[in-house]
Design a protein around this nucleic acid. Structure first.
Lengths: 173, 173
DNA sequence: GTTAGTGCAAACCTTTTGCAGCTCT
DNA sequence: AGAGCTGCAAAAGGTTTGCACTAAC
């Protein structure tokens, strides 16, 4: 559990543990998911309706700059917001399905190897690293193929002067 | 040279090669750097003062969705804009110095290995992948150490009630 | 001649900032 | 007590959209 570790670190740094911060830290820690600022704000507001969106941003910024959480982009699925996760775990890549939005985590030695090679090759001092992989999960691959086929058929019909027939669209965050 | 390849691909897809697109493609291709939309816009405007910022965004979006350019975040150095590069090269990681902003590219088998492992481990169909590493380049490491030391000294002085003495700040995009 | 693409203005979304008042330690 | 933190309002930065006009094929 990363929560107590983070709280201790903050205390040591002389950062005040306010009610708002406690709420936010607990949410980030317990929700196994990757939350973005807005989502976190909405969840926090359930626990304290007065809590302001700005406080969420300020807290996230502080945690990020203090190296206590990592900021992710997740291939900009669902927009340009950022996602956050506590930094306690071992380094891992994020595997994002571009169709259903599911995010998997991948741990494996190529990541460590890459790290070591970058350090020695450039004499670089790594502070943070991020690997994101976008594509289609095993479940979505076949569905995706069908969608592409449908779209092509529609296209052909449209060109031939016919009315396109209704088609279902899919998406989820 | 990726330029001709991209132009051909666009032509095959029935995308019109307008004057604006030609300008933008040439800029993205020739500038070896990683440009963001604003920078690209400014450069393009030198060649055609009428060219609009919106056209830059629309062109980048089209190229990105068509898989012809890759979008990078470069660890959000200098803000939340995105950077672009043509997709012809071999897969590589971006190594970003958080102090001077220099971006290095790293090619190495860990990247391919990671790719293969993700594919086989999850049965995942990879569309695009991105690895970004932030830290301090060999040149900036010592400078950074000094800055941290100075900051600490200042901090100590401030606490002891003294006026902090002037200090030099550094930064570049 | 069509249809895709452009420019312009205005909207949008996410994130940051200034400042007065509140609260942790 | 008092520096640090919060809330509110407002702005900033980056990007997208609606619509009428233009240009590529």
């Amino acid at each position: 559990m990363a929560l107590e570790g983070i709280k201790d670190t903050l205390k040591q740094r002389g950062v005040r543990l306010t009610r708002q911060r406690r709420i936010l830290l607990e949410l980030i820690d317990e929700s196994g998911q990757h939350l973005d600022a807005e989502r976190l704000y909405l969840l926090a507001k359930e626990k304290d309706p007065k809590l302001n969106r700005v406080t969420v941003y300020r807290t996230l910024k502080m945690l990020k700059e203090g190296g206590l959480v990592d900021e992710l982009d997740l291939m900009h699925i669902g927009g340009d917001q950022h996602f956050y996760e506590t930094r306690m775990k071992q380094e891992h890549a994020h595997i994002i399905c571009l169709r259903c939005g599911k995010v998997e985590e991948f741990f494996g030695e190529p990541l460590q190897k890459l790290r070591r090679q970058v350090e020695s090759h450039f004499g670089f001092q790594i502070v943070l690293a991020r690997t994101e992989v976008g594509g289609y999960c095993s479940h979505c691959q076949v569905l995706r193929a069908n969608e592409v086929k449908e779209a092509a058929a529609e296209q052909a019909q449209a060109v031939s002067g016919e009315e396109p027939r209704p088609r279902s669209h899919h998406r989820s965050a």
